Amino acid sequence: MTTWVCLCNITPMPFLIVLILLIVFGPNLWVKHVLRKHQKHIESLDGTGSELALHLIERFELDGVEVIKGKVDEDYYDPKNKVVCLSPEVHDGQSLTAVAVAAHEVGHAIQFYKQEPVSRLREKYLSKAHAIKHYGMMFLMASPILGLVFRLPHLTLLTIVIGVITMVVSVLMYVAVLPEEFDASFNKAMPILEEGYITEEQLPKVRQILRACAMTYVAGAMADMLNLWRWIRFIR
């Protein structure tokens, strides 16, 4: 005897929750997976990430730019202080991830040193993203007190709407910086590394790493949306 199942009785909520989790955490997990996947030490490479960064700074005559060792997963270029910060696994590592990330960050240094238009995207949009997130989180923290003092109707709904708008706008601001990130990866780092710093067989792996580097900001912003859920649960 065949048992028929009515699909209308199956709640879509678990699938919706899984979909939301994939959207929020998927990009960040993918970026970390790619970077860790290619951290294996390769003896044939000419040096570590920091040594490559110093070499490229000298080669492109980026006067005043320094290389420092940062904390775990702390890879960035600080245009204000002219500092290429590399995480320990990149700074001291002799791997495809190390050389690709180092070249990507030096790519940012080249953008700012040459004052290319794409280098202005970070200043224009990231500062706004930080401000929006800051004020949005301040409202979420203050909303319980506002509700008690002013007896605001539908406060929970208002809080959720403002929280969602805050995080969505913040993510969109990070998306707006993508052209700068892709330029550092594929108009700067990739052509440099193709000149002989890596082998022909290593190019597809390095291309994947550089794509992950370009997506780091957006992936981090998506993961930040977890804070929204925590505050909404706290307020409720």
Rank of each mutant, 00 (worst) to 15 (best):
L126Q: 08
T166F: 01
Q115D: 15
K133P: 09
G136N: 08
D183F: 12
G136V: 08
L121S: 00
E116C: 09
K114Y: 15
H130N: 14
G163P: 03
M138D: 00
I132Y: 05
T159C: 06
P117D: 14
V164T: 04
Y174A: 13
P117V: 13
G163W: 07
L157W: 02
L121G: 10
E123F: 12
Y174T: 09
V169Q: 02
Y135E: 01
F139L: 04
H130L: 14
V169E: 01
G147H: 05
V171C: 12
L155T: 02
L140V: 01
P153M: 11
P144I: 09
G147C: 01
E181I: 11
G147K: 01
L148F: 13
G163N: 04
P179Q: 14
F150T: 10
P179N: 09
R122S: 06
I160H: 04
E180H: 14
L146D: 00
S170T: 05
L157M: 13
G147A: 05
L172R: 03
A131G: 08
L157V: 13
V171S: 06
F150A: 12
P144F: 02
K124M: 12
K124N: 14
F150I: 07
I165M: 09
I132S: 06
G147I: 07
G163I: 00
T159N: 04
I145A: 03
A131T: 12
I145Q: 08
P153R: 14
A131C: 11
L148Y: 12
I162E: 03
M138G: 05
V171F: 06
M141V: 11
M138P: 01
M137E: 03
L152F: 11
M141P: 02
A176T: 07
L172I: 05
V171R: 02
L157Q: 07
V169T: 06
